[in-house]
Design a protein around this nucleic acid. Structure first.
Length: 293
DNA sequence: GTCCAGGGTGAAA
DNA sequence: TTTCACCCTGGA
């Protein structure tokens, strides 16, 4: 019917459901299967036989959904220019070996911005819950800036967005008034876009870098959260009390156009390490024996 | 029951 | 540069 198959070999767990996007839920009963929203469609996405099988469950049908979803899923990292630099990095190369099919998404900009503003001092499950709520109150279509502005701060607070509510409304207003332009952010260089984004209330350096990396495809972006910061200190011997901003600058200088990908691998290595710390032992060994499924 | 951290940010000290 | 409040929820 409207379903389709993409001949792409992608690690869905670590690409869709590990913090880049807040739109996907793992299907417990099914192997390598995720349910979630892309644009205005609800999809069931399954990894099978080195391909991605997509079933359209609900929503508005778009002729070019297949092409758009293919774009959304990003590129095979091995096709990146100078990817061998990461393969030769002793911290990163074991993670690439473990997650060779990990990708960086190219998400819808507005939804991604709301998601990362919402992520502030929250956790993955709760962020996903808030994003689902926001979609549900608008007939399963993620509300655009105008609609979101109409929903208003008070309603967002009722939904549980808390102190993030005014930030989201403020951004919506800024887009409506064209003080902020998605197109302009997309066309500008990484530095220009970063400078514009951090001027918006509620978007600091970390959230701006996430938006630029996971939505605007700015490969120079290196988001540093508390986990990545720990990783940089632990494995790259960054000073113990370095600020996230300085650490991001330093990492960006080192990795250049591979920054966004390097950050993802370090993020994943730190996640494995946190688990290993809890259990005791070596995180890369544990990772191979005890991967989450 | 209290305390605290969870993909931070902005404003004041 | 450092400190602190901000919404809310789950776990110790």
């Amino acid at each position: 019917m409207n379903n389709f198959v993409l001949k792409e070999n992608i690690d869905l767990l670590n690409t869709l459901d590990s913090g880049q996007s807040f739109a996907w839920q793992k299907i417990i009963e099914k192997e390598n299967s995720y349910r979630g929203y892309f644009r205005n469609s609800e999809l069931l996405v399954t990894e099978k036989d080195e391909s991605i099988h997509v079933e359209v469950l609900n929503g508005v049908l778009e002729d070019d959904l297949k092409e758009r979803f293919l774009y959304y899923l990003g590129e095979d990292p091995y096709s990146l220019e100078n990817f061998n630099i990461l393969l030769e990095d002793s911290v990163i190369s074991p993670v690439i070996e473990k997650y060779p099919r990990l990708r960086i998404l190219k998400q819808e900009e507005w939804e991604c911005m709301v998601g990362f503003i919402t992520s502030s001092c929250s956790n993955l499950e709760r962020i996903k819950y808030h994003m689902r709520l926001l979609r549900q109150i608008n007939n399963d279509i993620f509300p655009d800036p105008a609609k979101t502005y109409q929903i208003g701060e008070n309603r967002l607070r009722e939904l549980g967005f808390g102190f993030r509510a005014p930030y989201i409304i403020n951004l919506a207003k800024s887009l409506i008034d064209e003080e902020t332009s998605i197109d302009k952010l997309r066309r500008s260089t990484y530095e220009e876009s970063l400078n514009s984004l951090v001027k918006i209330k509620g978007i600091g350096r970390k959230v701006a870098d996430c938006i630029l990396a996971y939505s605007f495809d700015k490969k120079e972006s290196f988001p540093v959260d508390r986990h990545v910061l720990k990783g940089l200190i632990r494995w790259y011997k960054y000073p113990k009390k370095i600020t996230p901003e300085k650490a991001s600058d330093k990492a960006k200088k080192k990795f250049g156009n591979l920054s966004s990908h390097a950050q993802q691998y370090i993020f994943h290595r730190q996640r494995l390490a946190s688990r290993a710390d809890m259990w005791g032992g070596d995180h890369l060994v544990h990772a191979i024996n005890n991967d989450i499924n």
